[in-house]
């Protein structure tokens, strides 16, 4: 599904991502963890096309997507959420989902004018389903800026799903959530398993990562220091060292 080959992204002298090799198989939920500033968000931004890589290749379903601009990567099937929630605050919840329906399927199914100028009737059911999934049906006419924090996180996930992604990039979706909300998020992520979507999950909340992922890679200073199943990662000495600052090694 996704293969990163010697991917690098530098900011001046900072090597945020530094020669990263990573392969995510179809249908996997793949965890990407690492200490603060280890390059996780930068990796996500480079895959999604918000930042050009300094070096390296990104293969998505076997094709080099390097030349594709951001909006085309979405249409190719890569959707994402942001670590710092990003929504169109002055649009309603409903509209936030509506404008995000830009998948290749949607493009093929509806003509240009129907898609952009046609009414809401053809998309009602699908948006209702997304609202139901994220528990936001009662807030559909609210401006996104007026939602509570947890609701905004749920809307972001629903918005990513509105693009019918093949690959979903989640950048710390549990940040700032209480344990009940983390539990709900975990259920939502698990319910996506088997629906054909592959997930790259960046997360600090270990309870979530260890519970849902098939495989985990650990970054430190932009480089991969370990990869394996959740159990292997938990037992890995280099990981404990990176996280605990050396004392536990």
């Amino acid at each position: 599904m996704l293969e990163l080959r010697s991917l690098a992204r530098h900011f001046g002298g900072v090597r945020a991502v530094d020669g990263l090799n990573l392969t995510v198989q179809d249908g996997q939920i793949f965890g990407l963890i690492g200490p603060n500033g280890s390059g996780k968000s930068t990796t996500v931004n480079v895959i999604a096309g918000l930042l050009p890589p300094t070096a390296g290749t990104i293969l998505f379903r076997g094709e080099d997507i390097g030349p594709l601009p951001t909006h085309r990567r979405l249409r190719a099937g890569i959707a994402r959420t942001f670590q710092n929630i990003r929504l169109f605050g002055q649009l309603s919840v409903w509209q936030n989902l509506w404008v995000a329906q830009n998948s290749a399927e949607d493009l093929a199914r509806r003509g240009f004018f129907t898609r952009w100028l046609g009414g809401q009737s053809g998309v009602r059911d699908e948006i209702a389903r997304l609202l139901e999934f994220s528990g936001l049906a009662h807030k559909q006419n609210e401006l996104a800026a007026n939602l509570a924090f947890g609701e905004q996180r749920r809307l972001e996930l629903a918005r990513a799903l509105a693009a019918r992604p093949k690959l979903l990039l989640l950048d710390e979706p549990a940040a700032g959530m209480n344990s009940e909300e983390v539990g709900q998020l975990r259920e939502r992520i698990l319910s996506l398993r088997g629906s054909g979507v592959t997930i790259l999950l960046v997360e600090h909340v270990m309870e979530l990562v260890m519970g849902v992922t098939d495989r985990i890679a650990v970054l430190n200073f932009g480089q991969k220091i370990a990869e394996g199943t959740p159990a292997e990662i938990q037992a890995h000495p280099a990981v404990r060292k990176a996280y605990l600052g050396g004392e536990a090694a």
Binding site: H71, L74, L87, F88, L91, W98, N102
Partner: peptide, 26 residues
């Protein structure tokens, strides 16, 4: 036009162009 999806997309582009591109808007 403002009530159409184009209208919402237009507003989205103005509010956060990077996000607009990230949700597939050219």
């Amino acid at each position: 036009m403002e009530r159409s999806r184009l209208g919402a997309a237009l507003r989205g582009v103005g509010l956060d162009p990077e996000l607009a591109a990230s949700v597939g808007i050219d």
